[in-house]
Nucleic acid binder design. Structure first.
Length: 312
DNA sequence: CGTTGAACCTGTTTGC
DNA sequence: TGCAAACAGGTTCAAC
């Protein structure tokens, strides 16, 4: 479910309710998705939510703990929703959904509940001093990066563009839905090698990512099966998908049938007419005669244009 | 570096 | 109809 627009929507919902609230108590169900459950139980009660941040798909609640001493270091509750995680702010009596494993009771009587059937999500507490290290491992924030920042990350990379967009150490927050939607909009085939995109294509992709994410946030994210925001409402952006989950249906631009292939281990939807496939890479040279092989060798390692500058 | 496949876990959809 | 396989928005790790 949750990619940047969904996590942003949840974070905004939490922002409307949590800052200033004190956490009174914590109850845990299954804890195999929590790094250190005991730490959660000891740190959270009595703390006050100061701020709700989002870094890519990661939510970070800054907590002010009861001043034990002069050290005014904040603590962060980190929440990653994985595939099926939900965070809901509930009235006390509300029925408890199955697979709800974390309850945070607030000082106004309401509860923050974490529900996650597959438990691919993650939760943990971190000291403030650990945060910079965590954030530097993440890539660029898509809605904050400049076009040249974006392009610089593609330079010299021989990976397929889809794999690179999904890599959270390159850009943070894009997942399977929004990479496919962005590539469709930019008319780029998911298997194209990143370094070999033209300047025009890079620009189109940069702009597509912004447009898609902004529109998705405006509509509260995409709800395919599980996703709901912090109040339990689904998003609406799935109604505007052009590629994702549309196998066999007509391309909204040209009418060709949307195809599904596996790229980077993930289902990838694209329009075979609008997003033209890269030239097939050479098969193994094993069967070639010796002279042919040496001739090949000379031209084999073509250096992608973008890497030339970087290397020099 | 980059790719692939498996693993984590449960629920739903698809196919024979 | 029934059961098993395939599949799902994410991340991580080992092996090549």
């Amino acid at each position: 479910m949750p990619e940047l627009p969904e996590v942003e929507t949840v974070a905004r919902g939490l922002r409307a309710h949590l800052p200033g609230r004190r956490i009174v108590s914590v109850q845990l169900g299954k804890t195999d998705f929590i790094d250190d459950p005991a730490a959660l139980e000891s740190v959270l009660p009595g703390s006050r939510v100061a701020e709700v941040r989002r870094h890519g798909k990661l939510m970070a609640l800054r907590l002010e703990t009861e001043a034990d001493d002069a050290a005014d270091e904040s603590v962060f509750l980190l929440i990653h929703l994985g595939m099926t995680g939900r965070v809901l702010v509930c009235a006390p009596g509300q029925p408890v959904a199955p697979h709800t494993h974390v309850f945070l009771t607030l000082d106004d009587g309401r509860e923050v509940r974490y529900t996650d059937p597959r438990r691919f999500g993650r939760m943990r507490v971190e000291r403030e001093s650990a945060m910079p290290g965590i954030l530097t491992k993440l890539g660029l924030e898509p809605l904050e990066m400049t076009e040249s920042d974006f392009a610089a990350r593609l330079a010299g990379r021989r990976a397929m563009i889809k794999a690179l967009l999904l890599n959270q150490a390159v850009y943070r927050g894009l997942g399977n839905i929004y990479t496919d939607e962005s590539l469709w909009r930019a008319r780029i085939h998911p298997m194209r090698l990143a370094a070999w995109l033209s300047a025009t294509e890079r620009r189109a992709l940069y702009r597509a990512i912004r447009k898609i994410l902004e529109a998705a946030i405006r509509l509260g994210g995409s709800s395919i099966s599980d996703y709901v925001d912090s109040e339990g409402n689904p998003g609406m952006f799935q109604l505007r998908h052009h590629a994702y989950d549309r196998e066999g249906k007509g391309c909204h631009r040209c009418g060709a049938k949307i195809r599904r292939i596996i790229v980077a281990g993930r289902s990838s939807y694209f329009c075979p007419r609008c997003q033209t496939a890269p030239r097939r890479r050479k098969k193994s040279a094993a069967k070639m005669s010796q002279p042919a092989q040496s001739r090949r060798r000379a031209v084999r390692r073509r250096v992608p244009p973008a890497a030339v500058n970087t290397a020099a």
